[in-house]
Design a protein around this nucleic acid. Structure first.
Lengths: 194, 194
DNA sequence: GATTTTTTATACCGATCGTTACATATACTC
DNA sequence: GAGTATATGTAACGATCGGTATAAAAAATC
């Protein structure tokens, strides 16, 4: 009977996710991953295949954890504006949290697209497109209930919110303060009320 | 009497700028730079010092060329809203131009801050802070002339514009269309009119 | 033409990269 | 305890990294 793995895959993915999130794909060496995951490279290769496949798993993990938490805030129940506000503020809190590297793994990876193959790039683009479409659907629904002015362009508003999310991650990395990001978030919500 | 350099420094900087803009700092090898600049590494080292110093010169060059062109649009004379609109549209055109890599060198470099030393990081942060302060001053002036509602927070508006600029560069790299980015730009200008 | 100074070219350095080959360890069944 | 299958550990691979040493080329003056 075979030996069982002595590590927790989810914890290992968490650790790898933090490294890629902090340093980017090529900026993260196998040595960095070994240290963070507490595994040797042969164990990493055995469990995940290669660096690229590990990254793709990490991206899924990011969507299922970090991004899912953002969507949970968006759908927290008190209306779209409140949901958007809560989601943007959660992103800000996450950025300034000592438990995460700051910024966004997807945003960083999209900008480092030269380092990624077609599979990773497609996954990244689809992630952002899905966020935009999800926002658009929620805005359209809020227009039906009368919470958002039906005269506004739902797609344009959704694009602006996604744009705000991406921009905030950049400003956060550029050293702008939490107060500054909160002002950006408030202005994004104001756009929904115009 | 000494031999003269046989290359044009400005053209060399342009070429290096395109490489760093496309691939990022560590993603750009000396080999890439040699090919793009048409120089051997000993000439690059002779003229610029080392890779880090070349990058810092490239950043200055980017500010003096690409970013100066954006500011020229901002200050093109027909009022702040028109100026902001022209600047944002110029960024979009630049992103989709076949002559440039797309995205923004400053935004990319800020996100890749793990790859940069304190000098480069400070220069990058100061670049974005200067843009925000420049916008804030122009907004305050437009409030004095009555073009912008004096009740609006100039700093918050400036932050939102800078955020929009950064976000658009990310969305551009994420594969969103020119039409989509134009909608984001329009919404940013609408915020000035609220 | 010789000399000087500087530029450019070529080869090489030590370090690190992602990955693989091979060895060792170990969990589990019989 | 032996055997099997799998996990983990160690060493090494070829390639590439940024940078340096040395050689060759060339512009300009004398």
């Amino acid at each position: 009977m075979a030996r069982h793995k002595t590590f927790d895959e989810r914890e290992a993915l968490d650790a790898a996710m933090h490294e890629f999130w902090l340093r980017g794909y090529e900026g993260t060496s196998l040595q960095d991953l070994e240290t963070a995951m507490g595994l040797t490279r042969t164990s990493i290769y055995n469990a995940f295949g290669n660096k690229r496949e590990l990254f793709n798993r990490v991206l899924e993990h990011y969507q299922q954890t970090v991004m899912a938490a953002l969507l949970a805030e968006l759908d927290s129940g008190a209306g779209l504006k409140t949901g958007v506000e809560r989601m943007l503020n959660r992103m800000i809190d996450l950025h300034f949290s000592e438990e995460t590297p700051g910024g966004c793994l997807v945003v960083l990876s999209v900008l480092e697209r030269e380092q990624h193959d077609a599979t990773s790039t497609r996954a990244l683009e689809q992630t952002m497109a899905a966020m935009q479409k999800g926002l658009q659907q929620r805005i359209a629904k809020a227009q039906q209930t009368g919470e958002i002015d039906a005269g506004q362009d739902a797609r344009a508003l959704a694009l602006s919110i996604v744009n705000t999310m991406a921009g905030m991650m950049v400003l956060g990395k550029a050293g702008f303060s939490k107060t500054a990001l909160r002002q950006v978030a408030r202005n994004a919500v104001r756009l929904l009320q115009c």
